Amino acid sequence: MERPKLSSKSDAVVQKLADYLEEHWENKLDPEQIVSEFKLNYRYMSTLFTTKMGISLFNYHERLRIHKSAELLRTTTFNVSEVSDRLHFTNPYYFSRVFRKVMGESPTEYIRNIYRT
């Protein structure tokens, strides 16, 4: 995902947060782990991230995970349930809902469209 160029101290925190989320894309968003890693108040980091990036920490992480899942669907033989499990979604139906919200089509439609082109 593209990120705006950032340059102040708070920008550095946001950059590190984005990098952290990209390194941990397979995992659910864990505020306690983020607090432990950054030693800053989660609400502060979340507000700062939203202000600087124009998207909430949760939504950024969700979109990142879905884009990575689309890559998995494109480049592996994993089915929707396997990708959902790999990304620690509670169930494939919830994963499909989130996928549709982010990508504009269900994972099944996405796979079908890959094979059409």
Rank of each mutant, 00 (worst) to 15 (best):
W25F: 14
N27T: 11
N27F: 13
L29H: 00
L29F: 09
D30E: 07
D30S: 08
D30T: 07
P31C: 04
V35N: 12
S36V: 04
E37Y: 11
E37C: 10
E37T: 14
F38E: 06
K39A: 07
K39Q: 09
K39N: 10
L40H: 14
N41W: 00
Y42W: 08
M45K: 12
M45A: 09
M45N: 05
L48K: 12
F49P: 12
F49H: 05
F49A: 02
T50W: 09
T51E: 13
K52W: 00
M53G: 02
M53W: 05
M53N: 05
G54Q: 09
G54R: 11
G54P: 02
I55G: 03
I55D: 01
I55K: 10
S56V: 02
S56D: 04
L57H: 03
L57C: 10
L57Q: 08
F58A: 11
N59K: 10
N59Q: 12
Y60I: 00
Y60M: 01
Y60T: 01
E62Y: 00
E62L: 14
E62P: 01
R63F: 04
R63K: 13
R63Q: 12
L64Y: 14
R65C: 06
R65H: 02
R65E: 07
I66W: 02
S69E: 13
A70C: 03
E71Q: 14
L72T: 08
L72M: 14
L73E: 01
R74I: 01
R74S: 07
R74P: 01
T75E: 15
T76P: 04
T76V: 09
T76M: 05
T76D: 06
T77L: 11
F78C: 12
F78P: 06
V80L: 10
S81Q: 06
S81W: 01
E82W: 00
